[in-house]
């Protein structure tokens, strides 16, 4: 009986959490029209998610392209079709690697920072202070970040694709001798507008998903069971990163299966 009961309460707990999360996100999005001076806040969020994360995106993108070029070359070389290297690199980047890896990197850098910042603001009653001032704390803290993510995630993904293609050409053409013209023309030929649409759809979805998950975890750091203060903030940050990463991969599968 106890097992059944605890399974039931666990499930209820999770379902309630999901509903609460959906409400939180909805409320934050609805606050777009109710929050004043959103522009400056959005700019700061673009700075945090965008400019600050540029190095990691560019570095990871380059290396991803380099590895794809190498691996792709050795696989294709067996069949004598190195000419298709551009197809392999560009399609893997555009359809999967860029949106997923860029989102994971942004979770690691911007998402964790967001969760920790909101967690500390919760901890030091700054969020309660906003509430008592009659300021919509979701609107002030979360909405600008969600809006920024709508632009930042696709932009970072596109940058990832660009440097990834360049990385692929480095290892494929410069190192292994695939003709650059062949490489770039097969890149050009392979990528369709549907691929780009899939890529951007994924980027936007991952952006909204991860930013709202990280914000939700940080915002509710005081609800972490069995921990208070700094511990609660660290637990909230860990949860934010883990749940966001899982959500990115799960959502990737769902979107891919719907679009293929």
């Amino acid at each position: 009986m106890d097992v059944v009961g605890s399974v039931g309460s666990f499930t209820l707990d999770k379902v309630r959490g999901l509903g609460d999360f959906a409400l939180f996100t909805g409320r934050s999005l609805a606050a777009v029209f109710a929050t004043k001076r959103l522009g400056a806040r959005v700019a700061r969020a673009v700075y945090e998610q965008g400019f600050r994360c540029l190095p990691v995106i560019l570095i990871v993108g380059t290396f991803t392209g380099l590895v794809l070029g190498l691996q792709g070359y050795y696989v294709l070389n067996r069949f004598g079709s190195e000419a298709l290297l551009g197809v392999l690199v560009s399609l893997s980047l555009v359809r999967e690697m860029a949106p997923v890896l860029a989102a994971l990197m942004l979770v690691g850098q911007a998402g964790s920072a967001l969760a920790a910042e909101l967690g500390i603001q919760r901890n030091t009653e700054q969020i309660a202070a906003l509430d008592t001032m009659g300021i919509n704390s979701c609107g002030y803290l979360v909405t600008p970040r969600l809006l920024a993510a709508l632009f930042v995630f696709p932009a970072q993904t596109a940058l990832f694709v660009a440097v990834g293609l360049w990385g692929g050409s480095l290892s494929g053409s410069l190192l292994l001798g695939v003709d650059p013209g062949v490489y770039w023309s097969s890149v050009q030929r392979a990528v369709e507008s549907e691929d780009v649409r899939e890529c951007l759809l994924k980027a936007v979805t991952f952006g909204l998903l991860t930013v709202s998950i990280c914000a939700y975890q940080g915002f509710h750091a005081h609800r972490i069971r069995g921990a208070t203060g700094a511990r609660a903030v660290s637990a909230a940050t860990t949860k934010a990163v883990v749940i966001s990463s899982i959500a990115v991969l799960a959502a990737d599968y769902v979107i891919t299966s719907f679009l293929i």
Binding site: V94, A162, V196
Partner: peptide, 8 residues
């Protein structure tokens, strides 16, 4: 991404 790569 959208104009050069995607659309050909």
């Amino acid at each position: 991404l959208t104009l050069k790569l995607g659309a050909g």
